[in-house]
Design a protein around this nucleic acid. Sequence first.
DNA 1: CGTGAAATTGACTAAGTTCAATGGCGGTGG
DNA 2: CCACCGCCATTGAACTTAGTCAATTTCACG
Lengths: 213, 213
Amino acid sequence: MDRIKDIPLFSKLSDKHLKNLEQISHFKNYNSDEILFYEGDDPGTLYILTEGVLRLYKTDAKGNELYIHQFVPIGMVGELACFENINYPATARFITKGQILKIDFKRLEKDFFQNPEVCMEIIKSLTKKVKILSNVIHKEMILTSEAKVAKIIVEHGELFETHKNTQIASILNITPETLSRILTRFKKANLISVEKNHHINIIDTQKLTIIFE
Amino acid sequence: MDRIKDIPLFSKLSDKHLKNLEQISHFKNYNSDEILFYEGDDPGTLYILTEGVLRLYKTDAKGNELYIHQFVPIGMVGELACFENINYPATARFITKGQILKIDFKRLEKDFFQNPEVCMEIIKSLTKKVKILSNVIHKEMILTSEAKVAKIIVEHGELFETHKNTQIASILNITPETLSRILTRFKKANLISVEKNHHINIIDTQKLTIIFE
DNA sequence: CGTGAAATTGACTAAGTTCAATGGCGGTGG
DNA sequence: CCACCGCCATTGAACTTAGTCAATTTCACG
């Protein structure tokens, strides 16, 4: 990806706006583990993720990372901080190689957002964010660790085929020890069994579902 | 409030749209403690809060209410469920008398949201929501109970003049016992003193601030 | 095989909730 | 004027959930 035109969000822009946009933005490549921005950084740059996987997380007083979301292309990142002119409320780190279109938000024409197509894209992006955050609140504050594990097994059991337990624990914001203990409990209760290849076999979907509903 | 025109969100609508809107919406009054919608209800109605205070909360497995936000006029409520056609992710209950404009979302004209003014209002409302949820995540998952109390004392100390400790505890999503213990700790550490009228006197703002930053 | 990362397990700790008992205080009625 | 009632605040003790730390085992893979 190397042309702004190819980004759906901007595909409907007039030539005039495209030209403006090109002047105030540029693509940049990132390596795995590189930080895009830190929680608390000053706003002003709007990011469009065009390649790679970008993890968003907050850090608590003890230094633990609180996983919030992983973005995949194409997504807008950092719009809240830009729109509201507040510091970025979370940190963004690449977990694969990736590419970002960086846009100087302050230099965006005022009438840029008057474009109905752009408005709709922004509304879509914001709606997605509200949904993500609403989900984070549900998962982190309503569900117990056991419920989180039951939920991810039922809804994304295939993750266990491609991820180590430490990675899954980090996505669930629990420790590997806690995950291990809960899986052991589920095995003993005959709710699941674990294959050699780390694949999880669900024995009793219904009982698992009850745990998180 | 009894005319749609008076709602800023809709003040810029064309007569045609206003007429459509009038046909598919109506005002309704509510009493304190009445439920507007429950978490899990089917979507389809967009609510505009025109009077009163509306509390949004989720309920956990043990029946505890997790306070998320209190809306005051004028605000849009329930748009995520409508836009995404998912069940309402939280419960809304009036904590004073109030009034709501109920809009049948499915019967809204498709081109309704093409109106740039309406779009901007929706973007504003969604941005506000993202900010609210982002704050909830910060307060509930990053801050300790002690930090929550320190923060509310420094940023909204006047709340103690008008609210009982049980009410403040409920806003902070901690128990009254925990709040009491923390206030006692702050008193003993000479960070605050408490007047007869329940007013809180901050003795050391700086030390209090350090606790939550 | 051997090695290092990942998983498991046990003992302990931390934070906050729950439950129960007690204390204070303001309003009300005799 | 005071005794009583009910609500709120306070305090202690036990409990719950999950995290921390350390020791051990398992496992994948060169």
